[in-house]
């Protein structure tokens, strides 16, 4: 799998554009005038040292944080601010750096929550259950089962997520996001804390998702090997500023990026 990994895959137009994003918490400036775009069907990585503002960037994209300046254009709709659930309704899904699964629920129920946006049966229908609500439930269960098969977690359907090992929890987190059938998938350090095998599995899943479902992916990752292998383009943040943007090869050769990572005295 060569750099870019875009053998045969067709990258489309811009689906997500960020312009002049600035975000501050009190006096701390997490992001300063950051602009970049994401094209349809590509895997876009965000890298940078700790505290560079990577997670904040994702939080801006799906509306957890609201930037003080700048605009986010998704699917041609330009906005400054968006609610998280609106972002979800527009087709943006997300996994979390520190797994944010619903601990009291089984694997199956966790993934089923990803279908909630698509489930329409009302209070009364659900109260009676027999009839439309049950039909809807079964129909979505089937969609969820496909994702369970895809991510190879059939054995854990009924297990409470809290009891799963870390690597599998990360997989369920991904499954829940996939259940939303997102147009844009944001992955916050999907491989953090994994061993080599788990990382390989996760890489394969990410590439398969990108390939089979045509999902556009933005991911944050610290493992440079992984980033350089699977992403089409990379953006580099440092101290809330964008210092590099381009294909893995371009970024690798960028002096500012090398300085930021190797630590050059300023």
């Amino acid at each position: 799998m060569g750099a870019g990994a875009n053998g045969g895959k067709s990258i489309g137009g811009v689906v997500l554009g960020l312009e002049g994003i600035s975000l501050a918490f009190g006096g701390v400036r997490a992001l300063q005038n950051v602009s970049f775009d994401v094209r349809e069907h590509e895997i876009r990585a965000i890298i940078g040292p700790n505290g560079a503002g990577k997670s904040s960037m994702l939080n801006v994209i799906n509306g957890v944080y609201h930037p003080q300046e700048g605009t986010v254009t998704f699917n041609g709709v330009k906005r400054r601010d968006v609610n998280t659930h609106e972002a979800a309704a527009q087709g943006i899904a997300r996994t979390f750096q520190n797994i944010a699964l619903f601990k009291g629920m089984s694997v199956l129920d966790n993934i089923m929550t990803g279908r909630n946006l698509r489930m329409k049966s009302g209070l009364l229908a659900q109260a009676i259950r027999i009839g439309p609500a049950e039909r809807e439930e079964l129909q979505h269960r089937e969609a969820v089962e496909q994702i369970i098969d895809f991510l190879e977690i059939q054995a854990y359907r009924r297990t409470p997520v809290g009891r799963l090992p870390y690597g599998l929890q990360k997989r369920v987190d991904l499954a829940r996001a996939l259940a939303m059938e997102p147009k844009l998938l944001l992955l916050d350090e999907p491989m953090a804390g994994m061993n080599v095998e788990e990382k390989q599995d996760m890489c394969r899943f990410i590439l398969d998702v990108n390939d089979q479902f045509g999902t556009t992916i933005v991911l944050i990752e610290h493992d440079m090997g992984v980033v350089m292998d699977i992403s089409d383009r990379v953006i580099v943040l440092d101290y809330g500023k964008k210092i590099g943007d381009g294909t893995p090869d371009e970024v690798r050769g960028n002096q500012a990026v090398i300085d930021a990572y190797l630590g050059v005295s300023h």
């Binding site: 957890v64 979800a88 899904a93 601990k103 929550t113 279908r115 909630n116 946006l117 209070l123």
Partner: peptide, 20 residues
């Protein structure tokens, strides 16, 4: 799905909002 929305809210409200 209503019950799952409740439980999602209970277990991790930010994540619940993020999935819509």
């Amino acid at each position: 799905h209503m019950g799952r929305a409740w439980m999602a809210m209970r277990d991790m409200d930010v994540a619940a909002e993020v999935i819509g």
